[in-house]
Simulated assay, not measured.
Amino acid sequence: MFNKKAVILVVEDSALIRMSAVDLVLSAGYEALEARDADEAIRILEARADIDLVFTDVQMSGTMDGIKLAHYIRDQWPPVKLIVASGQAIIEDSTLPTGSRFFAKPYEDHAIADAIARMLSSP
């Protein structure tokens, strides 16, 4: 039986950091999609039903930041897992949707890869 690769959407406005995060996702064995901001991320989520996890930055240009995006995703696509990262602020878990994980930047790649694996293996 063929196992589908999990699909992870990386949302990051910095091209360099986005490329690095996409590389992390690919090297961990997942399919990676990318968006420059929340608006693009929402368009991708609306167009595809196979996204398993969104890995988003907090501070970005556009109509909403990563925290608002995380709450929007939780409301619209409840099964999608969420990882939120920020280099500017430490985000309290209580400000994120239930089940989300927060990582301060700079994060360690293996910590993100481990979190993705754990989150995708839980119902």
Rank of each mutant, 00 (worst) to 15 (best):
F2A: 12
F2M: 13
A6V: 09
V7N: 12
I8P: 01
L9H: 04
V10P: 07
V10W: 00
V10H: 03
V11R: 04
D13N: 14
S14H: 11
I17D: 02
V22W: 03
V25P: 07
L26P: 00
L26G: 00
S27D: 11
G29A: 06
Y30M: 08
E31C: 07
A32H: 06
L33Q: 09
L33W: 08
D39G: 12
E40M: 14
A41K: 12
A41I: 10
A49D: 13
A49N: 15
D52A: 13
T56P: 04
Q59L: 08
M60D: 02
G62Q: 11
T63W: 02
D65E: 04
A70H: 03
H71Q: 13
Y72E: 14
D75I: 08
Q76W: 01
Q76S: 13
P79H: 12
V80G: 10
V80I: 15
A85F: 09
S86L: 03
G87N: 02
Q88P: 01
I91D: 01
T95I: 14
T95L: 14
L96P: 12
S100G: 14
R101D: 04
F103T: 00
F103P: 00
Y107R: 03
H110L: 13
H110R: 15
I112F: 06
D114I: 03
A117I: 02
M119P: 01
L120P: 11
S121Q: 14
P123Y: 04
